[in-house]
Design a protein around this nucleic acid. Structure first.
Length: 104
DNA sequence: CGTGTGACCGTTT
DNA sequence: GAAACGGCCACAC
């Protein structure tokens, strides 16, 4: 049984440079779909993780860390415009949020 | 042990 | 098109 922190930590730590994932994606990958809030909460406390590679579903950065995150993402090769990640510059994992959803 | 809050997401009004 | 609402999970008090 892995704790939520462990799962999220593993997922976030597995994000390659230049790629950005959304909280919802991380939560889903962690095995806790819908726990996007919890992901943010853990990233806030968890350290040593590329939290800056985690952005909102709209590609928006955290309100308080937008500047820091933007600088870090820029260092990774991602272009951040007005506090919003540009999908074309970053590897479009979900920032386009137009990905096909399961349709039972 | 119960309540509140949060770096959220998706749908509806 | 924008705004509002509810729902999900985990942690702190």
């Amino acid at each position: 049984m892995v704790t939520f922190e462990e799962a999220v930590r593993s997922v976030v730590a597995a994000i390659p440079p230049g790629e950005v994932l959304s909280y919802g994606e991380v939560a889903e990958e962690a095995g806790h779909p819908g726990a996007a809030r919890a992901v943010g909460n853990l990233l806030r406390r968890a350290t040593g993780l590329p939290w800056w590679r985690v952005v909102a579903a709209d590609g928006r950065l955290a309100p308080h860390l937008a500047s820091r995150q933007a600088a870090l993402l820029r260092a990774e090769g991602v272009v951040v415009r007005d506090g919003v990640v540009v999908p074309s510059t970053a590897h479009r994992c979900d920032t386009g949020r137009d990905r096909p959803r399961r349709h039972p």
